[in-house]
């Protein structure tokens, strides 16, 4: 299998289409005949990242890079950036509004979930500029 990459734009506040990028990513991995366990991990990580872009960012992109050894999901946005990453990583901490919570999100589990799904999880954020999240999932024989 050669290297494959796709990038999907994600609009802020677009709750209608939220999840479409992750759904496409999941279908791509399924078409590649990958193992359901790794597909599930990637899909969950991508979906949490996508929801974060819709809920918290000014818009951004979700990218998937597949090579023979790993799958990398990169979520990058145009701002507003995270003030305190350690606090944002804490389970249960959220800045989401009541409206978001009514939709079943904003429980403060998004970033911890992304970390849990990844073998390597990196987050960089600059207030006023944006946030970049990289999730790397290593592929084993049989994936």
């Amino acid at each position: 299998m050669g290297n494959i990459s796709y990038e999907f734009p994600v609009e802020k506040d677009d709750f209608e289409r939220a999840g479409e990028a992750s759904s496409k990513i999941k279908k791509i991995l399924r078409q590649l005949g990958m193992d359901s366990g790794i597909i599930r991990r990637v899909a969950i990580g991508a979906y949490e990242a996508e929801m974060n872009l819709v809920i918290h960012s000014l818009g951004g992109t979700i990218r998937i890079d597949i090579d023979p050894k790993s799958i990398i999901i990169t979520a990058e946005d145009k701002g507003p950036g995270i003030h305190d990453i350690n606090l944002a990583m804490k389970e249960g901490y959220s800045t989401a509004t009541e409206k978001i919570r009514e939709m079943g999100f904003g429980a403060g589990m998004g970033l911890p979930n992304m970390k849990r799904c990844s073998d390597i999880f990196e987050i960089q954020s600059i207030v006023g500029k944006g946030t970049k999240i990289v999730m790397k999932m290593n592929l084993k024989d049989g994936d």
């Binding site: 709750f15 209608e16 939220a18 999840g19 992750s22 759904s23 999941k26 599930r40 899909a43 969950i44 991508a46 979906y47 929801m51 939709m103 079943g104 999100f105």
Partner: peptide, 13 residues
Amino acid sequence: LVNSQVVRTAEMA
């Protein structure tokens, strides 16, 4: 909850 995100969540999980 009955919004589309419930189905999306179910799809991913």
